[in-house]
C-alpha cells in the first residue's frame, strides 16, 4: 500500500482542563472520502482546527505526505495542500462571492489566473449566477457553498468539509454528494464532518467516530452501524434528539 496522505498519531488538544481531542490516531489515503462523525461537542471541529493549524496540538504528530505539519501556521499547511471550510461560515462578508473565491486562488496563482480559476470553480459548484453578490447578503446554504468554492480554489490535496450540508434540502444534499464524488475522481481527498447520517453513509466509504475527544471507531459504514460503542455513544448522548431535529427524513 502507498504511504498515507495524512498520518495522525496520538494527537491531543486541551483547552484548560477540557480535553477536546484525546490521543487520536488514524491515517487517510489519497482518494478516500472519510466521514468524521460524533455527537455535538465530540471534538470534530477541534480536530479539523488541529489539522489545518488553527490551533497547535497539545501533543502528538500530524504528517501530511510524510512531512510533519503539526503546529505549522495555517497558510503553510494550506500551501502543503490541506485546508478546510468553517462550520460557522467564515467568509469575507463585505466582498463578492467571486472575490472570496479569487482570494483562495491567490495561493497558487497570480491574480489574472486566480480570477479564471475562481470562475471555473464557481461554474462547477453552481454559483456563477451569484458571482457578484456580496457574501454577507447570501443565505446560509449559499454561504456554505461559497466556503467550499473558496477552499477548492486553493487546489487542496486534502479538503476538510465541516458540516457543509447543514440546512440543505435533500435535493441540494444530493448535489453536494455528487460534487464531492466528482472532485474525488479528479484527485481531491476528503474528510467530511456531517450530522446527517443518511448522507454520510451514502457519501463515505469509511467512517471515523469521535466521542468526548476519543476516536472510538474506524471502519466501513456497515461496521460502524453495528459497532456497540458507537451505538452506545449516540444513544447515550443525543442521537435520538439529533435525528429528530433533522429537517429531512432518515433511512
Amino acid at each position: 500500500m502507498t504511504a498515507p496522505l495524512l498520518e495522525v498519531r496520538g494527537v491531543t488538544r486541551r483547552f484548560g482542563g477540557l480535553i477536546a481531542v484525546n490521543d487520536v490516531t488514524f491515517d487517510v489515503h489519497a482518494g478516500e472520502i472519510v466521514g468524521l462523525i460524533g455527537p455535538n461537542g465530540a471534538g470534530k471541529t477541534t480536530l479539523f482546527n488541529l489539522l489545518t493549524g488553527v490551533y497547535p496540538p497539545s501533543s502528538g504528530d500530524i504528517r501530511l505526505e510524510g512531512e510533519a505539519s503539526g503546529g505549522l501556521k495555517p497558510h503553510k499547511i494550506a500551501r502543503r495542500g490541506m485546508t478546510k471550510t468553517f462550520q460557522n461560515v467564515a467568509l469575507f462578508m463585505e466582498s463578492s462571492v467571486l472575490d472570496n473565491v479569487v482570494t483562495g486562488g491567490l495561493l497558487n496563482n497570480a491574480l489574472p489566473e486566480a480570477r479564471d480559476k475562481a470562475r471555473q470553480i464557481l461554474d462547477r459548484v453552481g454559483l456563477s449566477a451569484i458571482a457578484d453578490v456580496r457574501a454577507g447578503d447570501l443565505s446560509f446554504p449559499e454561504r456554505a457553498r461559497v466556503e467550499v468554492a473558496r477552499a477548492l480554489c486553493t487546489e487542496p490535496k486534502l479538503l476538510l468539509l465541516d458540516e457543509v450540508m447543514a440546512a440543505l434540502t435533500p435535493a441540494e444534499m444530493e448535489e453536494v454528494i455528487d460534487l464531492v464524488r466528482s472532485l474525488r475522481d479528479d484527485g481531491t481527498t476528503f474528510i467530511v464532518v456531517e450530522h446527517h447520517m443518511k448522507a454520510v453513509m451514502k457519501l463515505c466509504e469509511r467512517l471515523l467516530v469521535l466521542n468526548f475527544g476519543e476516536l472510538i471507531a474506524d471502519g466501513t459504514p456497515t461496521e460502524i452501524s453495528r459497532n456497540d460503542r458507537v451505538i452506545e455513544a449516540y444513544l447515550g448522548a443525543n442521537f435520538a434528539k439529533k435525528q429528530a431535529s433533522q429537517p429531512v427524513e432518515t433511512a
Binding site: 489545518t52 493549524g53 488553527v54 501556521k73 495555517p74 497558510h75 494550506a78 500551501r79 485546508t83 478546510k84 468553517f86 467564515a90 467568509l91 469575507f92 462578508m93 463585505e94 466582498s95 472575490d99 482570494t103 483562495g104 491567490l106 495561493l107 473558496r150 477552499a151 480554489c153 486553493t154
Partner: peptide, 15 residues
Amino acid sequence: RAIKENEQAAEVIGV
C-alpha cells in the same frame, strides 16, 4: 481585505 474581513479564514485558505 481578507485579513480585514476574517483573519483566521484568510490564514486557513493560504494567506
